[in-house]
């Protein structure tokens, strides 16, 4: 009798099996990615001004996170994910720069930002008056234009802090720089945006 109680107690306190741990980790990763993916897409889209490219970069970042950092502590995932994503965005801009130069050499013009049509990307109205809808889209367009025009590091700091809600330490990890640099970039970004948007946002 006592022996069976002892066996039961041991079985109840045993560590989860390897398979159970793997399943648990997969569920944690799934929850994390599902929670972060939509904001990540919009952040990438504002930086690239191209939704398809942004979707590709976000998927690539998810794959790299799972492949390289799935064994890290869950709290580290967000800064690591955004570090991968920001590196991808920087590489994309470098490639785009070369591509545009090559296109100019061959006389085919450049892939201008003007091709990006925010209205075409916008979802259908959902229960708001047309006036409100137009005002919201106009405000969003101004915001996206202004954020996009910021220097790259200021844009990264602003989007990670304001849109994603990372703290200074997490933003520093994601940007690969010191916390002091994050504060400087962020402060300059807010100052610039306030100057640009002040008339419309007061």
């Amino acid at each position: 009798m006592n022996a069976s109680v002892g066996v039961f107690a041991v079985s109840c306190t045993r560590e989860p099996s390897t398979g159970a741990r793997a399943l648990q980790r997969e569920q944690q990763l799934n929850r994390f990615l599902a929670e972060i993916e939509r904001r990540a897409l919009r952040i990438a889209e504002i930086a690239l001004r191209d939704r398809d490219e942004a979707l590709d970069l976000v998927q690539e970042a998810m794959i790299k996170l799972v492949r390289n950092y799935s064994d890290r502590d869950e709290g580290e995932w967000a800064p690591l994910f955004y570090r991968i994503l920001q590196n991808g965005i920087r590489d994309w801009h470098r490639r785009q720069k070369v591509r545009n130069r090559v296109m100019v050499w061959f006389g085919k013009g450049t892939a201008a930002d003007d091709d990006y049509d925010l209205t075409a990307q916008a979802p259908d109205p959902a229960g708001r008056s047309p006036e409100t809808e137009v005002q919201t889209h106009e405000a969003l367009r101004r915001l996206e234009d202004s954020v996009h025009e910021l220097p790259a590091r200021q844009r990264e700091a602003f989007m990670l802090r304001t849109f994603e809600g990372l703290d200074v330490a997490g933003t520093a990890t994601a940007m690969g720089c010191s916390q002091g640099s994050v504060k400087t970039h962020y402060s300059r970004a807010v100052h610039t945006l306030r100057e640009k948007l002040g008339d419309h946002w007061s």
């Binding site: 997969e26 799934n30 897409l41 998927q59 996170l65 799972v66 979802p123 405000a139």
Partner: peptide, 30 residues
């Protein structure tokens, strides 16, 4: 932040589906 969050909430179904597919492709790495 409010404008950004609003734009996130209004992502269309096709985009959400592609994100979902991308996530599952990433999890296959495990």
């Amino acid at each position: 932040k409010a404008l950004f969050d609003n734009s996130v909430e209004e992502l269309d179904a096709a985009t959400l589906s592609r994100l979902n597919q991308g996530r599952h492709r990433a999890l296959e790495e495990l």
